[in-house]
Protein backbone atom coordinates (compact mmCIF):
# COMPACT_ATOMS: atom_id res chain seq x y z
CA UNK A 1 0.00 0.00 0.00
CA UNK A 2 1.35 3.41 -0.95
CA UNK A 3 1.93 5.71 1.99
CA UNK A 4 -0.58 8.27 0.69
CA UNK A 5 -3.40 5.70 0.67
CA UNK A 6 -2.62 4.47 4.15
CA UNK A 7 -4.88 5.65 6.97
CA UNK A 8 -3.50 8.62 8.90
CA UNK A 9 -3.73 6.47 12.01
CA UNK A 10 -4.59 2.81 12.23
CA UNK A 11 -5.16 0.25 14.96
CA UNK A 12 -4.07 -3.20 13.80
CA UNK A 13 -5.51 -6.03 15.81
CA UNK A 14 -5.28 -4.17 19.12
CA UNK A 15 -6.14 -6.14 22.23
CA UNK A 16 -6.22 -4.94 25.81
CA UNK A 17 -6.93 -7.06 28.86
CA UNK A 18 -7.35 -5.62 32.29
CA UNK A 19 -5.95 -8.23 34.58
CA UNK A 20 -7.01 -9.29 38.02
CA UNK A 21 -3.51 -10.16 38.98
CA UNK A 22 -1.87 -9.12 42.21
CA UNK A 23 -3.10 -9.33 45.77
CA UNK A 24 -6.79 -9.83 45.11
CA UNK A 25 -6.30 -11.60 41.81
CA UNK A 26 -7.71 -14.95 40.89
CA UNK A 27 -10.37 -14.29 38.30
CA UNK A 28 -9.75 -14.29 34.57
CA UNK A 29 -8.66 -10.95 33.08
CA UNK A 30 -11.32 -8.87 31.36
CA UNK A 31 -10.75 -8.30 27.67
CA UNK A 32 -11.68 -4.65 27.18
CA UNK A 33 -10.67 -4.51 23.53
CA UNK A 34 -10.52 -7.66 21.45
CA UNK A 35 -8.41 -7.68 18.24
CA UNK A 36 -9.75 -4.42 16.87
CA UNK A 37 -8.57 -3.07 13.53
CA UNK A 38 -9.69 0.46 12.84
CA UNK A 39 -8.31 3.28 10.72
CA UNK A 40 -8.97 6.97 10.27
CA UNK A 41 -8.08 8.74 7.01
CA UNK A 42 -6.45 12.11 6.71
CA UNK A 43 -8.94 14.93 7.35
CA UNK A 44 -11.65 12.52 8.36
CA UNK A 45 -13.64 12.56 11.59
CA UNK A 46 -14.20 9.07 12.95
CA UNK A 47 -16.81 8.47 15.64
CA UNK A 48 -16.50 5.54 18.05
CA UNK A 49 -19.78 4.82 19.82
CA UNK A 50 -20.98 2.24 22.31
CA UNK A 51 -22.26 1.86 25.85
CA UNK A 52 -20.06 2.23 28.90
CA UNK A 53 -17.72 -0.72 29.12
CA UNK A 54 -17.76 -1.35 25.37
CA UNK A 55 -14.05 -0.50 25.10
CA UNK A 56 -14.41 2.72 23.08
CA UNK A 57 -12.20 4.81 25.37
CA UNK A 58 -9.65 2.02 25.70
CA UNK A 59 -9.18 1.69 21.95
CA UNK A 60 -8.81 5.48 21.57
CA UNK A 61 -6.24 5.61 24.37
CA UNK A 62 -4.23 2.82 22.77
CA UNK A 63 -4.33 4.51 19.38
CA UNK A 64 -2.74 7.67 20.80
CA UNK A 65 -0.17 5.82 22.91
CA UNK A 66 -1.64 6.58 26.33
CA UNK A 67 -2.14 2.90 27.01
CA UNK A 68 0.04 0.00 25.92
CA UNK A 69 -1.84 -2.74 24.06
CA UNK A 70 -1.37 -6.39 24.98
CA UNK A 71 -1.41 -7.38 21.33
CA UNK A 72 -1.47 -5.60 18.01
CA UNK A 73 0.15 -2.57 16.50
CA UNK A 74 -0.52 1.10 15.80
CA UNK A 75 0.45 2.51 12.42
CA UNK A 76 0.94 6.19 11.65
CA UNK A 77 0.50 6.96 7.93
CA UNK A 78 1.22 3.33 7.15
CA UNK A 79 4.38 3.09 9.25
CA UNK A 80 4.16 0.80 12.24
CA UNK A 81 5.03 2.39 15.58
CA UNK A 82 6.29 0.49 18.58
CA UNK A 83 3.86 1.86 21.16
CA UNK A 84 5.38 -0.28 23.90
CA UNK A 85 8.60 1.70 23.76
CA UNK A 86 9.13 5.17 25.15
CA UNK A 87 10.56 6.26 21.82
CA UNK A 88 7.60 5.00 19.84
CA UNK A 89 5.12 6.73 22.11
CA UNK A 90 7.08 9.95 21.76
CA UNK A 91 6.84 9.79 17.98
CA UNK A 92 3.10 9.27 18.35
CA UNK A 93 2.69 12.20 20.75
CA UNK A 94 4.17 14.57 18.21
CA UNK A 95 1.47 13.69 15.72
CA UNK A 96 -1.50 12.64 17.81
CA UNK A 97 -2.96 14.45 20.81
CA UNK A 98 -5.74 13.66 23.24
CA UNK A 99 -8.58 15.62 24.85
CA UNK A 100 -10.01 14.17 28.04
CA UNK A 101 -13.61 13.79 29.10
CA UNK A 102 -13.52 15.54 32.45
CA UNK A 103 -11.86 18.91 31.90
CA UNK A 104 -11.67 19.64 35.63
CA UNK A 105 -9.64 16.51 36.26
CA UNK A 106 -7.33 16.95 33.29
CA UNK A 107 -5.43 19.96 34.59
CA UNK A 108 -2.95 20.43 37.38
CA UNK A 109 -4.80 22.75 39.80
CA UNK A 110 -1.54 24.44 40.82
CA UNK A 111 -0.46 25.44 37.35
CA UNK A 112 -1.87 28.28 35.33
CA UNK A 113 -3.55 27.23 32.14
CA UNK A 114 -0.87 29.13 30.26
CA UNK A 115 1.69 26.74 31.74
CA UNK A 116 -0.52 23.78 30.85
CA UNK A 117 -0.75 24.85 27.21
CA UNK A 118 2.95 25.66 27.17
CA UNK A 119 4.02 22.19 28.33
CA UNK A 120 3.84 20.50 24.90
CA UNK A 121 5.65 23.50 23.38
CA UNK A 122 8.55 22.82 25.70
CA UNK A 123 8.50 19.04 25.92
CA UNK A 124 7.62 18.16 22.36
CA UNK A 125 8.66 21.12 20.23
CA UNK A 126 11.41 22.73 22.32
CA UNK A 127 10.35 26.27 21.44
CA UNK A 128 12.09 29.32 22.99
CA UNK A 129 10.30 31.28 25.69
CA UNK A 130 9.23 34.35 23.72
CA UNK A 131 7.81 32.26 20.92
CA UNK A 132 5.95 30.10 23.45
CA UNK A 133 4.19 33.07 25.01
CA UNK A 134 3.04 34.28 21.64
CA UNK A 135 1.85 30.82 20.63
CA UNK A 136 -0.13 30.35 23.86
CA UNK A 137 -1.94 33.64 23.23
CA UNK A 138 -2.66 32.57 19.68
CA UNK A 139 -4.00 29.18 20.77
CA UNK A 140 -6.26 30.73 23.40
CA UNK A 141 -7.76 33.02 20.80
CA UNK A 142 -8.24 30.14 18.42
CA UNK A 143 -10.44 28.32 20.92
CA UNK A 144 -12.42 31.45 21.77
CA UNK A 145 -10.65 32.53 24.98
CA UNK A 146 -8.63 35.68 25.72
CA UNK A 147 -4.80 35.80 25.86
CA UNK A 148 -4.93 37.22 29.40
CA UNK A 149 -6.67 34.02 30.53
CA UNK A 150 -3.24 32.37 30.43
CA UNK A 151 -2.34 33.66 33.89
CA UNK A 152 -5.40 32.11 35.56
CA UNK A 153 -5.67 28.80 37.34
CA UNK A 154 -8.07 26.01 36.27
CA UNK A 155 -10.53 26.64 39.14
CA UNK A 156 -11.31 30.06 37.68
CA UNK A 157 -12.89 28.52 34.59
CA UNK A 158 -16.24 26.92 33.84
CA UNK A 159 -16.41 23.39 32.43
CA UNK A 160 -16.93 24.62 28.89
CA UNK A 161 -14.03 27.07 29.12
CA UNK A 162 -11.74 24.39 30.52
CA UNK A 163 -12.67 22.06 27.69
CA UNK A 164 -11.58 24.83 25.31
CA UNK A 165 -8.28 24.96 27.17
CA UNK A 166 -8.01 21.17 26.79
CA UNK A 167 -8.44 21.56 23.05
CA UNK A 168 -5.90 24.41 22.96
CA UNK A 169 -3.38 22.22 24.79
CA UNK A 170 -3.97 19.38 22.35
CA UNK A 171 -3.45 21.74 19.41
CA UNK A 172 -0.27 23.22 20.89
CA UNK A 173 1.86 20.35 19.66
CA UNK A 174 0.53 20.97 16.14
CA UNK A 175 -0.72 17.42 15.73
CA UNK A 176 -2.37 16.22 12.55
CA UNK A 177 -4.69 14.03 14.56
CA UNK A 178 -6.66 14.70 17.74
CA UNK A 179 -8.55 12.03 19.68
CA UNK A 180 -11.32 13.31 21.93
CA UNK A 181 -12.83 11.11 24.62
CA UNK A 182 -16.41 12.23 25.35
CA UNK A 183 -15.33 15.87 25.17
CA UNK A 184 -18.83 17.29 25.47
CA UNK A 185 -20.73 14.78 27.59
CA UNK A 186 -20.02 16.63 30.86
CA UNK A 187 -21.22 19.91 29.35
CA UNK A 188 -24.58 21.65 29.10
CA UNK A 189 -26.37 21.67 25.76
CA UNK A 190 -25.60 25.33 24.99
CA UNK A 191 -21.93 24.88 25.93
CA UNK A 192 -21.80 21.63 23.99
CA UNK A 193 -22.98 23.51 20.90
CA UNK A 194 -20.15 26.03 21.37
CA UNK A 195 -17.54 23.26 21.54
CA UNK A 196 -19.00 21.40 18.56
CA UNK A 197 -18.90 24.63 16.56
CA UNK A 198 -15.27 25.07 17.57
CA UNK A 199 -14.40 21.51 16.47
CA UNK A 200 -16.16 22.02 13.13
CA UNK A 201 -14.22 25.25 12.62
CA UNK A 202 -10.85 23.68 13.49
CA UNK A 203 -11.53 20.82 11.14
CA UNK A 204 -12.33 23.18 8.28
CA UNK A 205 -9.44 25.57 8.89
CA UNK A 206 -6.70 23.08 9.73
CA UNK A 207 -7.88 19.91 8.04
CA UNK A 208 -7.64 18.22 11.41
CA UNK A 209 -8.15 14.47 11.56
CA UNK A 210 -10.33 13.56 14.54
CA UNK A 211 -11.25 10.48 16.52
CA UNK A 212 -14.38 11.30 18.48
CA UNK A 213 -15.41 8.90 21.24
CA UNK A 214 -18.97 9.37 22.45
CA UNK A 215 -22.07 7.59 23.67
CA UNK A 216 -24.26 10.33 22.23
CA UNK A 217 -25.38 9.29 18.76
CA UNK A 218 -26.92 12.66 17.90
CA UNK A 219 -23.64 14.45 18.59
CA UNK A 220 -21.70 11.86 16.58
CA UNK A 221 -24.09 12.18 13.66
CA UNK A 222 -23.71 15.95 13.73
CA UNK A 223 -19.92 15.82 13.63
CA UNK A 224 -18.52 12.60 12.19
CA UNK A 225 -17.91 11.31 8.67
CA UNK A 226 -17.53 7.68 9.63
CA UNK A 227 -18.61 5.72 12.68
CA UNK A 228 -17.60 2.49 14.38
CA UNK A 229 -20.05 0.87 16.78
CA UNK A 230 -18.41 -1.09 19.59
CA UNK A 231 -19.85 -3.75 21.83
CA UNK A 232 -17.97 -5.83 24.37
CA UNK A 233 -14.56 -4.91 22.99
CA UNK A 234 -15.33 -5.52 19.34
CA UNK A 235 -16.47 -3.40 16.43
CA UNK A 236 -19.81 -4.79 15.36
CA UNK A 237 -20.62 -2.25 12.66
CA UNK A 238 -18.63 0.37 10.79
CA UNK A 239 -19.31 2.68 7.88
CA UNK A 240 -20.28 6.17 6.71
CA UNK A 241 -21.86 7.86 9.71
CA UNK A 242 -25.17 8.90 8.18
CA UNK A 243 -25.69 5.57 6.47
CA UNK A 244 -25.01 3.51 9.59
CA UNK A 245 -27.18 5.72 11.80
CA UNK A 246 -30.09 5.89 9.36
CA UNK A 247 -29.95 2.32 8.05
CA UNK A 248 -28.18 0.18 10.64
CA UNK A 249 -27.42 -3.42 9.70
CA UNK A 250 -26.89 -4.74 13.21
CA UNK A 251 -29.64 -5.25 15.76
CA UNK A 252 -27.45 -3.76 18.48
CA UNK A 253 -26.93 -0.52 16.55
CA UNK A 254 -30.69 -0.36 16.04
CA UNK A 255 -31.25 -0.86 19.77
CA UNK A 256 -28.84 1.99 20.56
CA UNK A 257 -30.65 4.22 18.09
CA UNK A 258 -34.05 3.30 19.51
CA UNK A 259 -32.86 4.05 23.02
CA UNK A 260 -31.48 7.39 21.87
CA UNK A 261 -34.79 8.26 20.26
CA UNK A 262 -36.60 7.21 23.42
CA UNK A 263 -38.73 4.58 21.76
CA UNK A 264 -37.23 1.52 23.45
CA UNK A 265 -39.65 -1.27 22.78
Amino acid sequence: MAASDAPALEARGLTKRFGRRGLFGGGAPVTAVDRVTLGVSRGETLGIVGESGSGKSTIARMMVGLLAPDEGEVALAGAEIDVRSHKGRKVLRHRVQFVFQDPAGAFNPRRTIGEAIEAPLIGLLGRPRAERRERVAELLEQVGLRPDHAARFPHAFSGGQLQRVGIARALAAEPGIVALDEPVSALDVSVQAQILALLRKLREERGLTMIFVSHDLAVVEALCDRVAVMRRGRIIEEGPCREVLSKPCEGYTRALLDAARGVAA
Binding site: V189, S190, V191, A193, Q194, E221, A222, C241, L245, R261
Partner: peptide, 23 residues
Amino acid sequence: ARLLACAPKLGEPDRALDAIEGA
Protein backbone atom coordinates in the same frame (compact mmCIF):
# COMPACT_ATOMS: atom_id res chain seq x y z
CA ALA B 1 -35.84 28.69 21.28
CA ARG B 2 -32.06 29.07 21.10
CA LEU B 3 -31.48 26.10 23.38
CA LEU B 4 -33.68 23.88 21.22
CA ALA B 5 -31.90 25.10 18.10
CA CYS B 6 -28.45 24.20 19.39
CA ALA B 7 -29.23 20.63 20.50
CA PRO B 8 -28.18 17.94 18.02
CA LYS B 9 -31.07 15.76 16.94
CA LEU B 10 -30.71 12.21 15.69
CA GLY B 11 -31.64 11.97 12.03
CA GLU B 12 -30.92 15.65 11.40
CA PRO B 13 -27.12 15.77 10.99
CA ASP B 14 -27.23 19.04 9.07
CA ARG B 15 -28.74 21.12 11.86
CA ALA B 16 -26.74 24.33 12.18
CA LEU B 17 -26.31 23.94 15.97
CA ASP B 18 -26.22 27.68 16.33
CA ALA B 19 -24.44 28.14 19.68
CA ILE B 20 -25.61 30.72 22.24
CA GLU B 21 -22.71 33.11 22.74
CA GLY B 22 -21.52 33.89 26.24
CA ALA B 23 -22.60 32.33 29.53
